[in-house]
Amino acid sequence: MRTGFAAPATEELADTITIGEYLIRHKESTYLMKVEGDGMASEGLLDGDMVLFERRIDAKRGDIVIVLDEAGYRLVPLSKRLVGQIIGVVTASFRTYAAF
């Protein structure tokens, strides 16, 4: 007689987590943007990457923030001299590859 794998009980399934849950801590304040250009390559963000950011007011030095000025959105590491309005703080990013 052949048998398959035992079906996992639902309690065990509860231990799994979706990618969304892993990447998003505060769902209510999180938004998504796509990176254009390689200006942030030094920070590990490449053209076409997706970044998740939270709208919040407690950005700290060293955080990568999304800034809005007349030209549109920009990604910058937060430093003392900053032109424009901070829209949010980048909390995660992800990338897909050619085989996607």
Binding site: L32, M33, K34, V35, E36, G37, G39, M50, V51, I66, G72, Y73, R74, L75
Partner: peptide
């Protein structure tokens, strides 16, 4: 749609 998201530089 994830394919047409606003871009940021």
């Amino acid at each position: 749609n994830i394919g047409v998201v606003r871009c940021v530089e």
